[in-house]
Design a protein around this nucleic acid. Structure first.
Lengths: 177, 177
DNA sequence: ACGTCATTTGACCTTCTTTGACTTTCTGCG
DNA sequence: CGCAGAAAGTCAAAGAAGGTCAAATGACGT
């Protein structure tokens, strides 16, 4: 457990959580050195885990004094993160979009790993039996239901979140800037 | 009794019972090794015993550091009326049915007045802009999302949202299948 | 015995991770 | 300007899991 990639991801996540600007700068070779791996391993982690899809942006410079800057789109776990979530919620969602939202909720500590996992699975299961236009509506609706529960206190609400997740909509080539 | 499949199933069940988050992660080859069988035997057990309609979801990842995660929809066997609620939940719901379920949740103290009210409003609003076959799907999905949040974290009361961020390493999300 | 359904196995496939050789960009300095 | 050195980027091959599928075997009911 805990592949190299996972450990590096966790490390960067920790740095991000600690910084209050919502971004961190690292040296590729320093990371590689700390984790005793080849530099390109770092590139791999960045391109598969810190994608725009998951709410991150990566910027870098080569040459002397080069660096890699990782910016989190949602820096502070804030209570009004819920509003943001509602705003990101349209009438229909693709699987990737729904996934991004679930990860977002988990990062903010609004939903637990368990909850997001179950939600993801139920969505999959249900989507498979629905015709194309409907699956998106179903995903959006499920998310809405989840948000509704988060928005009110019944007794103790949601569980707390665990560690930062990852998952994948297969980070396509790291591209760009 | 005592078929290989049964023993592996029992073993996983035990792991699940012991975990307090309602899910466990295993390595396919480790299980195969422990039970001295081929890896695909494990796949067989999972696909015949840990199915969605028995209340389980399986998520996995290939490649280095791969794993198989088994999640129980109801961490605590059958607490509250959650299970009943899931059963009453088909692929589609009329407004009246959805309403009945919301009342049911409220009666059990699983959802607050505020939550059910918001839910009802959102459903109304959304239903109005959907074509006939879809509104029902939407209602059912919203309820599913609500139930997912309710089955939150293992021990009923669970953590309070907004609890300490903490979060270090360890995260491993997963792909879904 | 015979047919059917559930288990076991095993050969082969797909996906994710790790490595390493080679390329492209920058910065600084003659 | 042009070159050296410092970073970071690319890409493809090798390694590590897990998934599939169908054939062989077993269990059971009629």
């Amino acid at each position: 457990m805990g592949s190299l990639t996972d450990r590096i991801e966790a490390y960067i996540m920790r740095l991000l959580a600690r910084s209050d600007d919502g971004y961190v700068e690292v040296r590729r070779y320093e990371l590689a050195d700390r984790f005793e791996c080849v530099p390109s391993q770092v590139t791999y982690v960045l391109s598969t885990r810190f994608t725009p899809d998951r709410g991150f942006f990566v910027e870098s410079r080569r040459g002397g004094g080069g660096y890699i800057r990782i910016v989190a789109r949602h820096p502070q776990p804030r209570q009004d993160g819920l509003d943001t979530a509602w705003k990101r919620l349209g009438p229909s969602l693709t699987e990737a979009e729904a996934d991004g939202l679930l990860q977002y909720l988990e990062r903010l500590g609004l939903a637990s790993r368990r909850q997001t996992t179950v939600a993801r699975q139920v969505m999959r299961y249900e989507a498979q039996r629905l015709e194309p236009p409907m699956d998106g509506v179903m995903r959006a609706a499920m998310l809405k239901g989840m948000l509704v529960m988060l928005s009110g206190s019944a007794h103790g609400s949601a569980g707390r979140a665990g560690a930062p997740p990852r998952n994948g909509a297969g980070g396509r080539g790291g591209d760009i800037r």
